[in-house]
């Protein structure tokens, strides 16, 4: 990618997570895992991770590895920050905690919903859940923080 920062603003201004994820889904780690945009609101973003045998972590059961769920939630919570503040602000993950409540059901798409509940000048605080159809029966719960940086593209 060149130095030009991608235009991910929506026609009404603000930040467009769908357009951003679409761009990320064509290459890199997100593209490799097959992560897709699903929906968003004022301060939350939902992405989805379709089931594929390549992501299996337990060959006996066909359950996907937990690594891709971390990536899904890292992406969903990261996008939720820019969605909440209404613009792209260079940031990196400072920390992320994931609690695995149960294995994702083999064959089912995993939905990752990230929510930004607080931003300060330097920080953004996020939480989220991953589920495979029923948000009331989550696969995982996450909490994390992002820190603002000067130069996203190095």
């Amino acid at each position: 990618m060149n130095d030009e920062r991608p235009d991910t603003s929506s026609p009404q201004g603000g930040f467009n997570p769908g357009m951003f994820q679409q761009m990320m889904s064509t290459h890199g780690h997100s593209g490799h895992l097959g992560i897709l945009y699903r929906a968003h609101g004022d301060s939350w973003v939902e992405l989805e991770l379709p089931y594929t045998p390549e992501l299996i972590g337990d060959v006996d059961t066909g359950v996907i590895a937990s690594g891709p769920i971390i990536s899904l939630m890292d992406n969903a919570t990261s996008l939720s920050v820019w969605t909440a503040i209404g613009k792209f602000r260079p940031q990196v993950t400072l920390d992320l905690r994931v609690d695995y409540m149960r294995p994702a059901t083999p064959g089912k798409t995993v939905v990752g919903r990230g929510e930004c509940y607080k931003t300060t000048r330097s920080m953004a605080f996020v939480r989220g859940i991953a589920h495979d159809g029923d948000p009331d029966d989550p696969v995982a719960h996450v909490a994390g923080t992002f820190i603002r940086i000067e130069n996203f593209l190095g």
Partner: peptide, 12 residues
């Protein structure tokens, strides 16, 4: 992000 490892990939 371009030129950097993905945090999820590191975690994996």
């Amino acid at each position: 992000r371009p030129g950097f490892l993905h945090g999820g990939a590191m975690s994996g």
